[in-house]
Design a protein around this nucleic acid. Sequence first.
DNA 1: AATTATTGGTTGCTTTTGTCAACTATATAA
DNA 2: TTATATAGTTGACAAAAGCAACCAATAATT
Lengths: 148, 148
Amino acid sequence: MNNEHIAKLRLFNRFYTSVIGLLDKQYLNSEFSLTEVRILYELAHHPEGMTATELVEMLGLDKGYLSRMLQAFEKKKLIAKRQSSADKRAFFLSLSTEGNKLFAGLNDASQQQASDLLSSLGDAKAAELIGHMDAIRNIFENLTINKK
Amino acid sequence: MNNEHIAKLRLFNRFYTSVIGLLDKQYLNSEFSLTEVRILYELAHHPEGMTATELVEMLGLDKGYLSRMLQAFEKKKLIAKRQSSADKRAFFLSLSTEGNKLFAGLNDASQQQASDLLSSLGDAKAAELIGHMDAIRNIFENLTINKK
DNA sequence: AATTATTGGTTGCTTTTGTCAACTATATAA
DNA sequence: TTATATAGTTGACAAAAGCAACCAATAATT
């Protein structure tokens, strides 16, 4: 057990928490909360539709809370609900045309932000950064796979 | 502008958000919120004392909100307030003996958690991971310095 | 010195976010 | 057929956070 390593891991976590917090602030001047954006994100990436229960599982939300947020999305015409024929309690949710358009806008802003960050680093440093990030993801992913 | 890089940066941010979320969950079975822990953390690392205004600036909190949280800490005897002689409006805040003890406990748990993660990776992978993390911090830090 | 503006912190009020339990309707198992 | 579980909704509530008014002390302006 290496104490230096432990300290650095914790330091990185604190550090990156603030990086992410900074980047997420952008969303906060959109009319949506972070949680709402996460929901839109999931829906955008499951165009075939997904149920509220699936969203609850993926995002770790309370189902009552989610239910209300979905109602708000519906009122704004951002999502479409299609009742499952196999299970009439369940509904397949997906972004409406408007919802997709709106999400595309949020996505563009996030894309732009990432792009700005990278270009302020310059090509060489940016490539380095991404290399480190890929490596970290890789290490963590092997970890979770091995734990199964 | 490299689209692949942008996508990977965003992927990493999402990925690491969930990593941090997982690690932070530990605190959530402590009696303190994440924000409260951050306050305790800052106080623990400024044993000479710091003012509420400094905390507000460092943590980006609302001062009213902070004021109440500090009151709660006081009621629990976790912090000590010493009025500034130079500016009688201001108070130097620090952890009490009890507060330090409590924070030490939280800190141990977090330390243990980090330790567990690293040892499940094994020495070689752990060293690699830390190397990547240091490199990332370094890249970002040069960025903010240059921006001044 | 007297007046004005600013600052550190507190308080009341409100909004946002999230949790919990009860409930309806459907589906599955015994 | 009865019991049990599940998908989603609703009501009530609690926790987290933000906003603005305010008091007391300090700093700046005249």
